[in-house]
C-alpha cells in the first residue's frame, strides 16, 4: 500500500509541477489544483498509514492519528478558496489583457520570438 500511495503522490505532484510551468493560465490553474491534491495526500500519510484502525479513539486498540486529518481538512478548505481565486484572477487577466498568457504577451509577439 505504501508503494502505491507514494507513487500516486509523486505522479500527482510531478504533473502538477509540469503544468504549472506552462505558459497559459488554464494549465497553470489545473497544475495548482493537482499540486494541492498531492499535498493533501502527502499530509494524510504523515501520521503513518494504518489500516483497520479506529478513526476515533474507542477504548484500547490501534487508532489513526487524528491530527493529519485535521490538517488535511484545513488544507482542502484553503486550497479550494485559493483555486477559486486563481480562476477568477485568470479570467480577469484574460479579459483585461486580451489573451491568456501568464505574461500577458500577445500572440504575435510570441510568434516573433520563435
Amino acid at each position: 500500500m505504501e508503494m502505491l500511495y507514494a507513487i500516486t503522490t509523486g505522479v500527482l505532484s510531478a504533473s502538477g509541477l509540469y503544468l504549472m510551468l506552462r505558459g497559459r493560465t488554464f494549465p497553470v490553474v489545473v497544475g495548482l489544483t493537482l499540486l494541492s491534491y498531492a499535498v493533501n495526500l502527502f499530509l494524510f500519510s504523515m501520521g503513518g498509514l494504518t489500516s483497520n484502525a479506529a478513526a476515533i479513539i474507542d477504548g484500547p486498540g490501534s487508532y489513526g492519528d487524528p491530527l493529519p486529518q485535521a490538517l488535511v481538512l484545513t488544507a482542502i478548505v484553503i486550497g479550494f478558496a485559493m483555486t477559486a481565486f486563481a480562476v477568477i484572477l485568470a479570467m480577469r487577466a484574460r479579459g483585461d489583457m486580451g489573451n491568456d498568457h501568464v505574461d500577458g504577451r500577445k500572440a504575435e509577439e510570441r510568434e516573433d520570438r520563435r
Binding site: L32, S36, V39, L43, V102
Partner: peptide, 27 residues
C-alpha cells in the same frame, strides 16, 4: 493584473511547499 497573476501563482506554489515541509516535520 499581470503582476498579481505571477504573485498569486508563485505564492500558491509556495503554500503547497509549505504544507509538504510541515507534513515532513510533523512526520
Amino acid at each position: 493584473i499581470q503582476s498579481a497573476v505571477h504573485y498569486a501563482v508563485l505564492n500558491l506554489a509556495g503554500s503547497a511547499l509549505f504544507l509538504f515541509a510541515v507534513g515532513m516535520l510533523y512526520g
